[in-house]
């Protein structure tokens, strides 16, 4: 092979590449859209995980929108009070303290509680499985169990239990909401950390069907709604819902009334990282 051709091609391509990149970088400097100096400062304070919980592609974009006044500091669900204060100082605004949010698994229908209606052998992800006859679990509302939420978690705060349900490690959860948007069934919900009472079911079937599908399904009997004060809980589509605005967090609990144990108090200890060692 002609060594000359090699050199010529290297030099010509290299030269062109160099010229173009030179031109581009010069133009980049010249045509740069001015950035607010505060953006860099705020980016320092933000968690830098680029989790997308704020709705922007990354922390940089969020910082930019903060300086433009297009979003609030509370828009970042991840950053702690300290960081929020620092950002508020940079922006020169007051920040109201807000309660920490954590993700909750709103389904108890693991492998022990609900049966499978068939064997699914496709792509091992919840989104793919829902496309095939709504997943392989009997319940059409509950957790599918392939762990899309665990995959989506950028903070290592989730794992799949042996029972086939995701578990949130509360002390690691930052409340970014990635798991909630990953779940095709809406099983993952963000709740303020002070909420402890939950209806851990999404099944909207009638009593008979719901009972056949899952041992821990809300069958829509409504006994909990009658046990609490008016308006604190409501029945909607055969499913009990808690009205957290009205419901005092520490009032008497109607949990023992629930025959299928789907209305539960989630103790903080149950979802700590100690369990990962066990």
């Amino acid at each position: 092979m002609d060594i000359n051709a090699l050199i010529v091609s290297m030099v010509s391509m290299g030269g062109m590449g160099f010229l173009f990149s030179l031109g581009l970088s010069l133009a980049g400097k010249k045509l740069q859209v001015e950035e607010d100096p505060r953006v860099a400062l705020i980016r320092e304070e933000l968690p830098g995980a680029n989790c997308g919980g704020c709705g922007y592609p990354g922390c940089g974009n969020f910082a930019e929108n903060l300086t433009l006044g297009k979003s609030e500091i509370s828009g970042c669900p991840v950053c702690n009070q300290e960081a929020a204060d620092a950002i508020a100082a940079i922006l020169g605004v007051e920040v109201e303290s807000r309660e920490r949010q954590v993700a909750r698994v709103m389904c108890q229908g693991g492998l022990d509680e609900t049966a499978k209606k068939g064997t699914y052998a496709g792509i091992q992800s919840c989104i793919a499985a829902t496309l095939v006859h709504g997943g392989d679990k009997l319940c059409d509302y509950g957790c599918i169990g392939f762990g899309d939420c665990v995959q989506a978690c950028t903070f290592d705060a989730m794992y799949m239990s042996a029972n086939g349900l995701p578990v949130v490690l509360e002390d690691r959860c930052t409340g970014c909401g990635n798991c909630a948007s990953a779940c095709p069934r809406g099983i993952m919900e963000l709740h303020p950390v002070s909420h402890t009472l939950f209806v851990l079911c999404k099944n909207e079937d009638g009593p008979k069907e719901a009972r056949q599908t899952c041992l821990k399904a809300c069958i829509g009997c409504g006994i909990c709604v009658r046990a609490v004060n008016e308006g604190e809980m409501i029945m909607e589509n055969n499913l009990a819902k808690i009205n957290y605005d009205v419901y005092g967090h520490q009032t008497v609990l109607p949990t023992d009334k629930c025959s299928t144990n789907c209305l539960v108090v989630v103790p903080a200890a149950e979802q700590s990282s100690e369990k990962i060692a066990a």
Binding site: V33, Y56, P57, G58, G60, N61, E64, N65, K70
Partner: peptide
């Protein structure tokens, strides 16, 4: 999409 959105300045407003 994920590669080119940051390139073009992130979200569009």
């Amino acid at each position: 999409r994920n590669l080119c959105v940051p390139l073009s300045g992130g979200t569009r407003s």
